[in-house]
Design a protein around this nucleic acid. Structure first.
Lengths: 355, 355
DNA sequence: CTTAGCACTCTCAACCCGAGAGTGCTAATG
DNA sequence: CATTAGCACTCTCGGGTTGAGAGTGCTAAG
């Protein structure tokens, strides 16, 4: 469709494009040649700017909603902006303090940590914050514990090395006394700590098949409890925060798009697959507009980054919002929060082992 | 403003009012005299209906958006409708099956039960489902359990008799070995099970003050752990589900009201206080429009009921939506789900004691 | 190469207008 | 006397029109 881009933009072209993008981000309205001429540093008249802008449109960096409207940056323009001409604005000291305060003191377990992070993402960007929790099968077991409830019910508590906790009530064939449960907890924790739930599951099944005949009663109930309690095959959870803050954005001024947006955020499966596109690479990934079917409908963008402990990637976190967003601030913010969350998870939960 | 209502409506007035309400609930548009005449059983002409409707308006049961529009029921009309002329439509067998299936098989602990209930409320009514979880201080302790994490961290698991589980990570002064934690868990569960968290907290504080001097080391750490672990002073949680389903309702056709609605649902504190108005009485409570500041802004209604185990009220559940809702179906639905949730909580978790 | 000038295009809000819907009133009717 | 047919009146809503404003593209002059 669009003619081939030139190998490189002249400094002037670049400057003008940048100006258009910056003011569009600010105002959400098509940018006219006149406003660029007035506001811009280079003392050119509107007419000259117009020529350049016509070129930029031809290259595919600008578009007009209709004849005689200003120009609007395209997806390509945003990408170029981010890669070559953006001056990132580091997260301010005040914000860093605020983040660390909230992340250090408030949450006690990892799930709360994730929730607070999502909230911070949203609050500090005025967009939607998204955090993907680790896939449960990949988490490394720290401890299992069984608590007797009434009747034949047992509460199984599974803790990962990174501090995520999962509760599950299971029903046993017969009542298992408290002391027995303590022994079982100890045994299972000792034998399986340090392995992923997926590995554990496989080993359990293999072992149950192998030893079926010669297993004593105690081992049988133990393994059965483990199988039931550790079998949490749910995929990753998506924590979405701040959808309402988008309602004030001008791009959501019509009801139909509002509905679409909420439908989008409710379809967790698609969100997960979108977020998973960002799994590779350590830096911040930016997905803009038609890069993905999800973002294209709404003309939205996603700025995302993985988080994890050591070299192990646990999940993804990011900010979702109209393509017209302050990448200069958003990208450092996502970066910082990714690092901070990773650090918090590492510091809090993988200290010296207890035994 | 409005002239005093007549002591009683004639059967004909009543019939007409009912017809207006029913068709308004269905169509969401002002009801004309003509449509009542056509659709209604009593073979009257539009002109006669008009006279009656003018009366009903004078008495405050109907209102017109403007001259030469049809009539719309007022809050008073809905109340009258619910109290005297509504024929409730019992929850269908299919729906009952669906509810019981979802509530029996899916969720394992009480928190999940609440979540599923909220979802069912929303799904079956196409409105917003709300469930208020029990105030944590009022819940009765079933068991406490401590799981050692890394370093000086201990995961405290608190289980209520009704199956609600709370996790909390606390930091201890010095490392407490695993066997010790087991002893402490046992001791605390035995001494405090059956009391509310509030009671326990008071006793703990008193005991710590009394015995400060003569306490041995073990008891000191035990009580300290208990104080920290059982001190969850958070208020009730509000689980809101299905806000998006309201977006298709015609009363939310303008953006401003959509924003208002989402703000409303995000202000958990106000929601709690509204729901708490329904705490008294065992039946289903209906709050319509200007009955409360919360519902008035939007012209919304709330149908709510308490749930609990035995004679102990635990929380509230309800359906929130435009005043124009199918009370004939909604009220039985809330009633049924309240009873089913109560039953599920009772059956699952307060069976025979384990020790 | 730059820019002033101008014609041209497109949107947007305001306005008007007529159709349609519904009412209130009155007079006729059983 | 309740009921109803008839009719004038009111209000909303959608469509069409118009004029102002904004912005562009082009051309010709500096």
């Amino acid at each position: 469709m669009e003619p081939k881009n030139p190998a490189i933009l002249t400094p002037r072209d670049s400057e003008i494009l940048k100006d258009v993008i910056l003011t569009y981000i600010l105002t959400a309205e098509p940018v006219s040649s006149r406003s660029v001429a007035k506001h811009g540093k280079l003392g050119l008249s509107a007419a000259s700017i117009r020529n350049v802008m016509a070129d930029l449109e031809e290259w595919g960096f600008l578009a007009q909603p209709h004849t005689s409207a200003g120009r609007v940056p395209t997806r390509a323009a945003y990408h170029l902006f981010i890669e070559t001409m953006m001056e990132t604005r580091a997260v301010s000291l005040k914000e860093r303090r605020y983040i660390e305060e909230n992340l250090k003191s408030g949450p006690s377990d990892a799930d709360q940590l994730v929730e607070v992070t999502s909230h911070l993402l949203s609050e500090l960007s005025n967009q939607v914050g998204i955090v993907l929790t680790p896939t449960w099968g990949d988490t490394v077991l720290k401890a299992v514990d069984f608590v007797p409830l009434s009747g034949n019910r047992v509460l199984c508590v599974v803790v990962s090395t990174t501090g995520f906790v999962e509760n599950k009530v299971i029903e046993t064939e017969e009542t298992v006394p408290r002391e027995e449960l303590v022994r079982i907890s100890n045994y299972l924790t000792e034998s399986f700590a340090g392995q992923t739930l997926r590995q554990i599951r496989e080993r359990l099944l293999r072992r149950m098949a192998e030893e079926r005949a010669q297993m004593d009663r105690w081992l049988a109930t133990t393994l059965e409890l483990a199988r039931r309690g550790l079998d949490v095959d749910q995929g990753p959870d998506v924590v979405v925060e701040g959808t309402t803050s988008l309602l004030t954005q001008p791009e959501l001024s019509d009801l139909h798009r509002v509905r679409r947006m909420f439908e989008t955020f409710h379809d967790k499966a698609r969100l997960v697959s979108l977020l998973n596109q960002c799994l590779l690479g350590g830096g911040v990934r930016v997905i803009i507009g038609e890069d993905s079917d999800l973002t294209s409908e709404l003309g939205f963008s996603l700025v995302a980054k993985t988080y994890g402990v050591g070299d192990r990637t646990l999940g993804t976190l990011g900010i979702f919002g109209p393509s017209r967003m302050e990448y200069q601030k958003i990208i450092p913010l996502v970066n910082f929060l990714g690092e901070t969350l990773s650090r918090a998870l590492a510091e809090s939960f993988s200290g010296p082992e207890t035994r």
